[in-house]
Design a protein around this nucleic acid. Sequence first.
DNA 1: TTGAAAGCGGTACCAC
DNA 2: GTGGTACCGCTTTCAA
Lengths: 349, 349
Amino acid sequence: MDHEPPPPAAMPSGRRSTIGSLARRAGVAASTVSRALRDDPRISPEVRARIAALAAEAGYTPNILARTLVGGRSGLIGLVLGPIENPIYAEIMREAVAQAAARGFRLLLLHVGQGPIEDATAEALSQYRVDGCLITSAELSSRAAAICAGNGVPVVMVNRVPRQHENAVACDNRAAGEVLARLLLAAGHRRLAVVTGNPGTSTSQDRADGFSGFVSSAGLAAPRRIEGGASHAAGFAAGQAIAALPTEERPDAVLGVSDILAMGVMDGLREAGLSVPTDVSVVGVDGIAAAAGPPYRLTTVAQPLQAMVARGLDLLTARIGGAALPQEMVLLRGTLMRRHSARLTAPED
Amino acid sequence: MDHEPPPPAAMPSGRRSTIGSLARRAGVAASTVSRALRDDPRISPEVRARIAALAAEAGYTPNILARTLVGGRSGLIGLVLGPIENPIYAEIMREAVAQAAARGFRLLLLHVGQGPIEDATAEALSQYRVDGCLITSAELSSRAAAICAGNGVPVVMVNRVPRQHENAVACDNRAAGEVLARLLLAAGHRRLAVVTGNPGTSTSQDRADGFSGFVSSAGLAAPRRIEGGASHAAGFAAGQAIAALPTEERPDAVLGVSDILAMGVMDGLREAGLSVPTDVSVVGVDGIAAAAGPPYRLTTVAQPLQAMVARGLDLLTARIGGAALPQEMVLLRGTLMRRHSARLTAPED
DNA sequence: TTGAAAGCGGTACCAC
DNA sequence: GTGGTACCGCTTTCAA
């Protein structure tokens, strides 16, 4: 088994073994080692076994960089993450790392946050020869997009509908908004409001539109729109603003376009002395873990994150394969989670 | 300026330009291009300018993989992240990406979550020739540690004191516990409790020990220990358990060893009808953003995340430089944030 | 079934 | 100052 004794210091214990060194030790050519290690059927079983043993003993690991250089794939997927203050991005990331690993890919963390991607980062994309790029939320800078396009690096957006020419996987946000509107109306709510997210984001717009559209087409007054943002703090402010409204104007149900925002709304309302859901019902969209339990128990439409990431990687790997596929966009239906932040039965009167 | 028209399809627009192609176009040798691009002073200004212009026009980016192959650094730092349910890890990550980028490094996301690192992941570490490894929380599997040691890849742990032989940067957790204990005692609290985190983690132990130690040495009864965990849910359960205690046994102040845990404790107490801080004071450690505002306004000791990551990268880059430095451990003092989850003035009686 | 050699994109050493 | 060349580790023809 040849366990090497713990090296005296942090000394790089000898040279790393390479295909060449293995070849020498095995008395064969480098090409033979290469083939043996990749289970090429042409190599005789004995030789293959001998080389495999040698490799294991030497703790050999192939140098992917060299392999990539020859023309192979890097096995790297560039990841661009949205504002991490919203736990949804952390959840997407967790899912993405795990699923990418299962498919033999590693994630190169390019950017975190909403800010635009710096040039240096955009270049990393090209310098490291990433096979593809996974983007959540944050806008891909035109620079980065150009680099991807110019190099034939496929791009897939997750949780965001592309303004440009990328592939995308998203939750059917419009439908999510409609489902929630239907739910609230069925429970007898009549004065609705929606707290919007970051202006210009498709998620916020689609959810709000679906919600408002359903209400309007039911013949009711369009929900009041309140400017929110992407954070709990923004929701909190909105909640306080709502609480400050004259009672007869106060909505009886409000949608925060994301869970984190809706949580803020709940806290804002409660801080102002109102009760949720007794005075005001609150619902969200996303399905983040933090909103599921007390003190929120948020009724929401949960995004099918696992499936979203899976389909995102599907789109990506198909295109990494080199196939000239058309732009594709996948919409996945969310799941309504009935919890306790909204009154869901018509008041008896 | 030569903006290329948007390629008809996602066609890899021609070949990527390389040092060789630039050399040909410039009518010089490849080595000259290499030197010119790296601002080697030996190259004449004119040639350098000409090559720079050519490179810019062609949208040339060096292939880091090739550069690394020659013996250079990969510029890659492996990142292992703890259980992302705790926002502290997301914050560390955000900080790490930004600071690493500023130093010219990219992060290879190796693992997220508490689970042990799979073998495939550990190998990626070696295959991609990462220059160093940054670990938060999650135990580095012995496999991964062996790979790092065997290849002379330096490892630095952030937010975790190493059981093994790695370098580390952490908050002075013991001191944090003491500071909070002193604060609570000064405000007249006498019946203290501590809700512990994941068993066996140094952060949880050190914080709890510092807290308990200070109380004991002040001549008071040691704080009651309540088993918690790493999540809001664990804290919530602990909060409910505390609320269920007979009044005369109920602690008047409790430390949740992490903010997320303390938030859970607060919610658990409140759900049971108790008021924080009127009935029970609650404090935490970490300084996560979510705990700062309402409804928590958690009094806590904030970890100096920015400095922690900076020092972590310092340790790493110094060792990546090849210097044979001794194991090093850096403890950084946190900052007490007095907010409103704890009664901080002695009750007048 | 195996070996030899070329080459991927750079860097660095040695000449000139 | 600049060019030639060898080489990093691996894959892939092309021969044998």
